[in-house]
Design a protein around this nucleic acid. Structure first.
Lengths: 156, 156
DNA sequence: CGAAGATATTTGCGTTCGCAACTATTTCTT
DNA sequence: AAGAAATAGTTGCGAACGCAAATATCTTCG
């Protein structure tokens, strides 16, 4: 096996890592709780966001799954619920019959318009404000870096 | 209803938020993948970490659940699996018979000692290195702030 | 002391999600 | 053009987890 000695985390690195990893569950729970009065989960909300920003308010399932970082089957099931709720419709694609579009219904648009102010306030209150302007900038850059590193094809 | 106008996110705030929220699933998937060869999930690993750092290598279920940000039932089930794997034992408490201790077995200690170098390398590679030293410091502070805000009893 | 409430844990149940397998369609190869 | 490979989506299955209820045990207070 490798004779490479382990490079442990420095105190500061460990603080960053542990703060991050232990905050995520509480933070997401807070967002879910703030969205619950609208009858939405974070997952539902994200679907509505992507659809409302998409051209013609619709996206192919696979593109939406990619945006949401969700497996194909996960998206199928999530959409099932949202279709039942009337916020999203499915539509087949005339050009490629493998494809299903998810499309925002008028009810879905109403839903996100009603929920958005509360959700934005929630994000601002729990996430943006505690870290301050400099923190926001830095965190944005850091996670961009983490993400772009993850998306690379792992050369090593 | 409130006549308060919504304060939308600035471009920079939105970048930070979206980078953060979209990176988490990929990041956790990367950690899970790096830990999988050891037969461990992130959840299992965290249990082993807390137990290995605890006095006498044991913790009350409720304290462990609190540390892990897990519901009591979630912890019960997670431990079930780890007990089956032989990494953890349950022990009742003579002083308070409601209490169950989770305690690290020698096999559990071996397990985390074997996995730790890989996991630390994984954290370093996916999380620490991409954000750089200044980023690490800032992210640590930011999430400490977010967390301490969440833990407050919500005065407003 | 004894009843009421608090605390610790587990179990039943429902939800969410990923993987693997399957179907349907399109695209590539020769 | 025919077969192989790739792509899009859904379904079966199992794992993880939270909530509410049940159980057992303390603790508090009249």
């Amino acid at each position: 096996m490798g004779s490479m000695a382990t490079t442990w985390l420095t105190a500061r690195e460990q603080v960053a890592w542990r703060n991050f990893i232990s905050t995520i569950p509480e933070l997401t729970a807070a967002f879910e709780a703030d969205l619950a009065p609208h009858g939405l989960t974070m997952g539902d909300y994200q679907v509505l966001v992507y659809l409302s920003e998409a051209e013609d308010n619709r996206l192919r399932m696979c593109d939406l799954a990619e945006s949401l970082k969700l497996s194909p089957s996960g998206l199928t099931r999530r959409l099932d619920g949202m279709v039942r709720s009337g916020w999203v419709d499915r539509a087949s694609c005339s050009g490629d019959r493998r494809v299903m579009y998810a499309l925002l219904t008028p009810a879905g648009r109403k839903k996100i318009e009603a929920a958005a102010p509360d959700h934005v306030a929630s994000v601002r209150r729990h996430f943006i404000e505690p870290m301050g302007a400099a923190g926001v900038k830095s965190v944005g850059e850091c996670f961009a870096a983490v993400r772009s590193h993850l998306d690379q094809p792992q050369l090593d």
